[in-house]
Nucleic acid binder design. Structure first.
Lengths: 149, 149
DNA sequence: ACACTAATTATAACGATTATAAATTAAATT
DNA sequence: AATTTAATTTATAATCGTTATAATTAGTGT
């Protein structure tokens, strides 16, 4: 599915949910959809400061929260470090480079059985799960491109 | 394996690694091993303030970092919210109640194949993975014990 | 017991995120 | 198109978890 369609559908979702479509929201969504880097709030803020010189960081955070609540966006949290935001398309997991911080999507089928198993042993009603794989990317393995996570 | 043995082994690990065993470290380790709540740094700080009225929060954080580096402790990060710390015994995953924040351990075999698969598709060299299942615990399902996460 | 170095303490600083209040604006209604 | 109103944005300050700093204290091998 093309990015244009994704954007159009996202805007529809907002309309349906009664969330106003402001230029800032439009731009943030567009950036999120086209971005491949799983950006932080600050990445987005910086990327849009040419188009919106007066936009506040709070606006970015506020709208990312709105998008998350509506289900358009997933927040990936990393302790003290800044959260990264991911436009929701279809289910995928993340492979994270511990050397340079790069995040690569990968698809993997049914971890439903893990959910079922966990539900059975703990007695919890399961809603979702989170899986991340950590390692080192090819770039970092061959020595180039070192930078802090 | 009993908690006493765990503590003794942990102290051995420290000795072997050349990490000094201070009363504070002893107490933090002991608390971590006996605690079932996957405490935050602040939980630990508060729990030990009777025994160590002059202990600094920094000491707790410093030592948790040391323990993590030596492999005795795992840090579970949750975005803006405080990290929780888990004494490493054998491999297990976490079931997290989204209503009250309770964390329950559960064991599950080989997710190695996921690691292998991910490594294959992404070209990363895999080090580890993280899996968490989210849901609602029995207590919260039946309505009691509501509190913020 | 001594000396050497690491660990602790107290405090300030940091960075990500959120709360607040005033100003602006999207969009429903006329 | 003008009006209205509540939602949104902005600017700023505040919050909270965590880390850096520098001075003091205390483990541990000799």
């Amino acid at each position: 599915m093309s990015n244009d369609v994704h954007l159009k559908e996202a805007l529809d979702t907002l309309k349906t949910t009664g969330v106003r479509i402001t230029p800032q929201r439009h731009a943030i969504l567009e950036y999120l959809i086209n971005s491949m880097i799983h950006p932080t709030a600050d990445d987005i803020y910086k990327a849009l400061e040419d188009k919106f010189p007066n936009m506040s960081v709070a606006t970015v955070y506020n709208n990312l929260r709105v998008f998350r609540e509506v289900g358009l966006v997933k927040e990936l949290t990393y302790g003290d470090a800044a959260s990264r935001f991911d436009f929701v398309t279809n289910d995928h997991y993340h492979m994270i480079c511990e050397s340079c911080g790069k995040i690569v999507d990968f698809h993997y089928p049914g971890l439903n059985e893990v959910e079922q198993f966990a539900s059975h042993v703990t007695g919890f009603q399961v809603n979702s799960h989170r899986l991340e794989v950590y390692g080192t990317c090819q770039n970092c393995l061959t020595g180039q491109n070192k930078q802090a996570l």
